[in-house]
Simulated assay, not measured.
Amino acid sequence: MGETLTIVDLQDLDNAVITCRRCPRLVAWREAAATQSRARKEQYWARPVPGFGPADARIMVVGLAPAAHGSNRTGRMFTGDRSGDFLFEALHAVGLASQAHAVSRADGMRLIDTRMAAPVRCAPPENKPTPQERDTCRPWLATELELLRPTLRAVVVLGAFGWQALLPVLSAAGWQVPKPRPVFGHGVEITLPAADGGPALTLLGCYHVSPHNTFTGRLTQAMLRDVFRRAQEFAGDRK
């Protein structure tokens, strides 16, 4: 993030994210996606994808990166592809989304007490960002966590990449991460105390909602809904 940016809320953050061009490989790839043979005949977002959800969310969903023909096309996290279809179906079933299907930014979807974000905000080739790209993008996630900290109580991390990318920024945002760092696994739950004595944050590991995992049955709707119900328990009732 440039030193001249002033970010005081999530709207400022989202506005700054979508103008980022710090990773040349990702800039080129996200913009080229609309010209690929499988591209849909519509105008692509083709910019970094900001977080999605209310500023007072109690639960956060952390993924990997935008899909070239999913959120890189629609401009909204997990919107417009099969991974998102599977995810929103589960969120709606447990009361964290207003509807079960997300197709565009104009479809009326509303997240309830939940916000989505990714460690890498641009679509990477083969869904594989480099470690340098992950680290370059890290300040966006760190700032988002800091802004959500007053209400955030649980984070559902989809996949090992998101887990590994998230842990280094949590201490800077105000939570104590144990050493050695906890290892990702589906169903893993780790509660991190707040460094200032405030409310703790619970991390919940979940297999990613990729077609590979959902088509093979490695991740089922029942499994995903169970993770979100656990997150709701840790998040507690809004006071």
Score class of each variant (00 low, 15 high):
M1K: 06
G2R: 06
E3L: 14
T4E: 14
T6V: 15
I7A: 09
D9Q: 08
Q11H: 14
D12H: 11
L13K: 02
D14P: 06
N15G: 14
N15F: 09
R21T: 14
C23E: 03
L26R: 04
V27K: 07
A28S: 14
W29G: 08
W29C: 07
E31W: 05
A33P: 04
A34C: 14
T35W: 12
Q36W: 14
Q36N: 11
K41W: 11
K41H: 14
A46R: 05
F52N: 05
A55V: 02
A55S: 10
D56I: 00
D56R: 08
A57N: 00
V61I: 14
V61G: 00
V62N: 02
L64I: 10
L64E: 13
P66W: 10
P66M: 10
A67T: 09
A67R: 02
A68Y: 03
G70H: 02
S71C: 14
N72T: 09
G75C: 07
F78Q: 10
T79M: 02
L87I: 04
L87F: 04
F88Q: 05
F88T: 04
A90N: 03
L91P: 00
A93S: 06
A97L: 08
S98D: 07
Q99E: 09
Q99Y: 10
Q99C: 06
A100R: 11
A100L: 11
H101Q: 13
A102L: 05
V103L: 09
S104L: 06
M109Q: 09
I112H: 01
T114M: 01
M116C: 11
A117P: 03
A118N: 12
P119W: 03
V120W: 02
V120S: 02
R121S: 11
A123I: 06
P129L: 06
T130K: 09
T130H: 12
P131A: 04
Q132P: 06
D135Y: 12
R138T: 11
P139V: 10
W140H: 04
W140R: 03
W140T: 00
L141C: 05
L147P: 00
L152H: 01
A154Q: 00
V155E: 01
V156A: 07
V157Y: 01
W163N: 01
W163P: 03
W163E: 07
Q164R: 15
L166T: 02
V169E: 12
L170N: 08
S171D: 15
A172S: 14
W175L: 10
V177D: 03
V183A: 15
V183K: 15
F184C: 08
G185Q: 14
G187A: 02
V188Y: 08
E189I: 07
I190E: 15
L192C: 11
A195G: 10
D196F: 12
G197D: 09
G198W: 10
L201M: 03
T202S: 15
L204S: 01
C206N: 02
H208D: 14
V209S: 10
V209P: 04
S210C: 09
N213I: 13
T214Q: 13
L219I: 11
L219G: 07
R225M: 15
D226V: 08
V227A: 01
V227Q: 01
V227P: 00
F228L: 04
R229D: 13
R229W: 13
R229I: 11
A231N: 00
A231K: 00
F234M: 04
D237V: 13
